[in-house]
Amino acid sequence: MTNILIVDDDSHILKLVDLHLSEAGYHVLQAQDGVEALDLLRKKKCDLAVVDVMMPYMDGYTLTKEIREMYDIPIILLTAKNQIEDKEQGYISGTDDYLVKPFEPKELLFRIKALLRRYDNQLDDFKICLGRTVINKKSYEVHIGDLTILLPLKEFELLYFFISNPMQVFTREQLIEHIWGLDYEGDERTVNVHVKRLRERFYKLTDDFQIKTVRGVGYLLEAKR
């Protein structure tokens, strides 16, 4: 279920938004100030935040900045003001959208759905699927069915590069350049070690792909068709 965080010091707004979002199938988390909101975010995964501007302890602009620094979720600011300067401050803080009070709950729902679709599409750009294997460059996770695998950074980057370019042969020099950079001071044995580790990790988990040695040249990733 999609979790929506609502942050507003007005209990009537919280109840109204909670009612409409719950009826639309969302799970709503409520906070009455920025401190409480950040505490909730640390404890629960939220997919979107709706944040009021005028709140005690921490205003909505500050909270938006805090959320943007720590979490990659869409944010809608709620405000009683409709001045261009206020909107500008909101977008500078990092909000994705802006809604002026009083507002129609249906309009908030439309905006939430639109933002969630946009963020889902962006996340898809970071994913590569190969059979049951999904490699996600946004979270740096590899998923095989229900199994989630976290790899050391260079192993992940090497696997992502291979899966992005299946059935292409790369020399060890090319792999060093793409993964470690031109200023890397190590030698080609680094590639051999990382390929060996990837093979050991995945050969029992999936047959979606295999990293093959091309004798005298380098490596390629053979994808199951």
Rank of each mutant, 00 (worst) to 15 (best):
residue 2 T to V: 12
residue 3 N to F: 05
residue 5 L to W: 09
residue 5 L to A: 03
residue 6 I to H: 06
residue 8 D to P: 02
residue 8 D to Q: 03
residue 9 D to H: 05
residue 9 D to W: 03
residue 11 S to I: 08
residue 11 S to G: 02
residue 11 S to L: 15
residue 20 H to A: 13
residue 21 L to E: 07
residue 22 S to Y: 13
residue 24 A to C: 11
residue 24 A to E: 11
residue 26 Y to R: 12
residue 26 Y to T: 04
residue 27 H to C: 04
residue 28 V to C: 14
residue 34 G to Q: 04
residue 37 A to M: 11
residue 38 L to M: 08
residue 39 D to Y: 13
residue 41 L to E: 09
residue 41 L to G: 01
residue 43 K to N: 13
residue 44 K to E: 13
residue 48 L to G: 06
residue 48 L to P: 03
residue 49 A to N: 11
residue 50 V to K: 02
residue 50 V to N: 04
residue 50 V to L: 14
residue 52 D to R: 03
residue 55 M to F: 13
residue 56 P to D: 02
residue 56 P to Q: 15
residue 58 M to F: 08
residue 59 D to Q: 06
residue 61 Y to I: 02
residue 61 Y to V: 01
residue 62 T to V: 11
residue 64 T to F: 08
residue 65 K to V: 00
residue 66 E to R: 06
residue 69 E to M: 13
residue 72 D to Y: 10
residue 73 I to G: 09
residue 76 I to N: 05
residue 77 L to D: 09
residue 80 A to W: 07
residue 84 I to Y: 10
residue 87 K to I: 02
residue 90 G to V: 07
residue 91 Y to G: 04
residue 91 Y to S: 01
residue 93 S to N: 09
residue 95 T to L: 13
residue 96 D to W: 00
residue 97 D to M: 00
residue 103 F to L: 04
residue 107 E to A: 01
residue 111 R to N: 11
residue 112 I to H: 03
residue 114 A to N: 14
residue 114 A to I: 12
residue 115 L to C: 00
residue 116 L to K: 09
residue 116 L to T: 08
residue 117 R to M: 04
residue 118 R to H: 10
residue 120 D to N: 11
residue 121 N to R: 09
residue 123 L to I: 12
residue 124 D to S: 07
residue 124 D to Y: 15
residue 126 F to K: 10
residue 130 L to W: 14
residue 130 L to N: 14
residue 132 R to C: 02
residue 132 R to D: 15
residue 135 I to Y: 12
residue 136 N to V: 07
residue 137 K to S: 10
residue 140 Y to P: 01
residue 141 E to I: 05
residue 142 V to F: 05
residue 142 V to C: 06
residue 142 V to T: 10
residue 143 H to C: 10
residue 145 G to E: 08
residue 146 D to V: 08
residue 147 L to H: 10
residue 148 T to K: 09
residue 148 T to Y: 01
residue 153 L to P: 00
residue 154 K to S: 03
residue 155 E to T: 02
residue 156 F to D: 02
residue 157 E to N: 15
residue 158 L to W: 01
residue 160 Y to A: 14
residue 160 Y to S: 15
residue 161 F to Y: 10
residue 161 F to M: 02
residue 164 S to G: 07
residue 165 N to A: 08
residue 165 N to V: 11
residue 167 M to G: 15
residue 169 V to H: 05
residue 169 V to Y: 03
residue 173 E to Q: 13
residue 173 E to Y: 13
residue 175 L to Q: 07
residue 175 L to N: 00
residue 176 I to R: 00
residue 177 E to D: 08
residue 178 H to N: 12
residue 179 I to C: 02
residue 180 W to Q: 11
residue 183 D to A: 14
residue 184 Y to P: 05
residue 189 R to E: 06
residue 191 V to Y: 07
residue 197 R to W: 04
residue 198 L to N: 11
residue 199 R to N: 09
residue 199 R to Y: 14
residue 199 R to M: 12
residue 202 F to M: 15
residue 204 K to T: 15
residue 205 L to K: 07
residue 207 D to H: 09
residue 209 F to P: 08
residue 211 I to C: 07
residue 211 I to K: 06
residue 212 K to I: 03
residue 213 T to G: 10
residue 214 V to I: 14
residue 216 G to C: 11
residue 216 G to M: 05
residue 217 V to M: 06
residue 219 Y to Q: 08
residue 221 L to Q: 06
residue 221 L to N: 10
residue 222 E to W: 13
residue 224 K to L: 08
residue 225 R to W: 07
